[in-house]
Design a protein around this nucleic acid. Structure first.
Lengths: 113, 113
DNA sequence: TTCTTTTTTGGCATAATAGCCAAATAATAG
DNA sequence: CTATTATTTGGCTATTATGCCAAAAAAGAA
């Protein structure tokens, strides 16, 4: 495999890792600071083994890092630009949804009156 | 399903759509401007039916839009902030790779003499 | 209408992912 | 050492994704 393909796959791996509701939720929680696995489990509500596997995927993509302190392992966000993009994404999706609502109301107004 | 979960899934859907090398490659090509399906097929090299299905996924996530002109369909990037994030991602991955190379050379230097 | 070009859709085989349980591992306390 | 707590790993099944081919659809030209 050539270098270009390798880098493309590294980038895609980051998106893929974020492309699951539980993983994205955990990452968004890490925007506010570090969390241990048990805290993240409470947030997503899955089995702890499932949470652990999700965290491995995020770590292997380079998005988070782990830090063991005693018996607990704390995860932190490494890839800070994810936070900015999620903000932009929210703006975009919010606007689009607003447009859909407006368009829907226009249809109702023209058909109803 | 509640609204929060729905919005979380919309965000995750965007990441998921971008989490495939061929789809990401097509999107990165759209940073430079619109492309028809046949152009995108040349870029990724898969069967045109596969490319079409990838484009459907990107469209349903709200990332791109299509515009038919005659017999051709042109796709354009709708979610501009993707470009900024991909740039940030490249910087991040580039730096991380550089650090790994430096670390590797230090290991060689200390073990070699 | 028929022919051609471009794109999408249906169907199918194969591969990858998700999530649970049970078991293993890691650190610490007693 | 044993017990406890936190986390990971193995193994399994069910679901989902991928990619190709063949066929359908959509637009325009002759």
């Amino acid at each position: 495999m050539d270098a270009k393909t390798y880098y493309l796959e590294l980038r895609a791996k980051v998106f893929k890792a974020l492309g699951h509701p539980s993983r994205l939720k955990m990452i968004e929680s890490l925007f506010e600071g570090e969390r241990c696995v048990c805290e993240l489990q409470e947030i997503v509500g899955s089995d702890i083994s499932t949470v652990s596997k999700h965290l491995t995927i995020l770590k292997e993509a380079g998005i988070i890092a782990d830090d063991r302190r005693g018996v607990k392992i704390y995860y932190t966000l490494q890839m800070q630009c994810v936070a900015g993009f999620v903000g932009c994404l929210n703006d975009f999706l919010g606007k689009r949804l607003q447009e859909q609502i407006v368009a829907h109301e226009e249809v109702k107004a023209s058909s109803g009156g």
